[in-house]
């Protein structure tokens, strides 16, 4: 649209802010490393091998994960809010996080029930990732199978919510029969975590994430016409079923991998699109999509920097920080604006 030019300045500011947050994020941590050494470690010209390992193998992967998680959740939240015409929709309305938690709870909590099969198995990073992906994939498949039968987009939303209730019920039954240690382990997974990803894992993460983003970019035009409603979108030549399916696939790829690798990170997916709309006064997804990308990445980096409490050995659960930081902001915005537009 013709208002596009006026957003270049805002985009530049956000991009610079993203860079600043990125470097701030990798220079802060339990071990304090001077800013100058952070740079030299990044470009491999430092004498201090320990610092270099910390930066390259721990902080850099974590910062990249934060960017992928923040931007991905923001974008899938945006897609869902437009598809479901509902400002309360988020990336997990299709049952992705509940499916993942079901998978993970079966592995962690179910090990006592299905003893023989998994007894003594080590809860490696990968078994959690696989359980989470399988769980979210299966629940999503069920939601998709049913949504192809219903014509109303709103019904898909409700089907997704119902699946969430079912999995939550299964998880509570499993919790009832599990030991305290297993429960703790499950709860820790539920906190979400951006750390502990190896470069190999990040590569797989990024690959699937990128496919989802590409599909989202190709859905920009249909997302814009969906702003008018289904019938108008159809009258503009949109293939409604196909576009709806593509948007759902993009969301599940992005939100699914994020949940598998970083756990069910709440709030970001719902809040970021709303925060972005406060700055970018447009509904055009061609502008909103990159804006949400930048905004999500920045917010996630900031949340992560807070979570690791610079200079201390403690790392707070990232899920708590995202909500603690984000919820008051959204409340403040709503009270100021008095209405939520999307």
């Amino acid at each position: 649209m013709n208002s596009q030019n006026t957003y270049y300045k805002t985009f530049t500011v956000l991009a610079v802010l993203l860079l600043v947050c990125f470097f701030l994020n990798i220079s802060l941590g339990s071990v304090s490393i001077p800013f100058k050494s952070v740079f030299s470690s990044l470009f491999g010209s430092t004498e201090n091998k320990i610092w270099q390992t910390i930066i390259i193998d721990f902080r850099l992967p974590k910062a990249i994960t934060a960017i992928l998680v923040g931007s991905g959740l923001g974008i899938s939240g945006l897609l869902m809010q437009t598809l479901f015409r509902n400002p309360l929709a988020g990336p997990f309305v299709l049952g992705i996080s509940s499916g993942a938690s079901l998978g993970v709870s079966l592995v962690i909590l179910g090990s006592s029930l299905f003893g023989g099969l998994l007894a003594g198995s080590i809860m490696s990073n990968w078994s959690i990732v696989i359980a989470a992906s399988l769980g979210s994939f299966l629940v999503l498949l069920a939601v998709l199978a049913m949504s192809s039968r219903v014509r109303d987009t709103m019904a898909i939303l409700i089907i997704g919510l119902m699946f969430g209730s079912i999995t939550a019920a299964v998880v509570s039954v499993l919790s009832y029969f599990s030991s305290a240690e297993q429960l703790q382990q499950y709860i820790f997974w539920g906190f979400g975590s951006l750390s502990n990803l190896s470069w190999k894992e990040i590569l797989i993460f990024f690959g699937i994430y990128a496919i989802g983003i590409v599909i989202s970019v190709f859905s920009i035009k249909s997302l814009n016409s969906l702003l008018l409603g289904d019938n108008y979108a159809k009258s503009l030549g949109l293939n409604l079923k196909q576009s709806r399916l593509l948007i759902i696939i993009a969301t599940s790829l992005i939100a699914g991998t994020i949940t598998a690798f970083a756990g069910p990170i709440a709030f970001i997916g719902l809040a970021i699109p709303h925060l972005t709309r406060q700055i970018f006064k447009t509904t055009n997804h061609k502008i909103l999509l990159p804006a949400v990308f930048l905004f999500g990445a920045i917010v996630m980096l900031i949340c992560d920097s807070i979570a690791q409490i610079p200079g201390s050995d403690y790392t707070l659960p990232i899920n708590a920080i995202t909500a603690l930081v984000g919820a008051p902001v959204v409340i403040w915005l709503l009270v100021r604006q008095r209405k939520m537009m999307f």
């Binding site: 190709f218 814009n224 702003l227 409603g229 108008y232 503009l236 509904t283 055009n284």
Partner: peptide, 28 residues
């Protein structure tokens, strides 16, 4: 149509420009 449009947050120009969708390229 009689049905309300989904997003009332659209600007008038943006809304009318959506009418050009059948003629615009893949990204609109």
């Amino acid at each position: 149509l009689t049905e309300a449009i989904t997003s009332k947050n659209l600007s008038v120009f943006e809304l009318i420009a959506l009418g050009r969708q059948p003629y615009t390229n893949w990204i609109g």
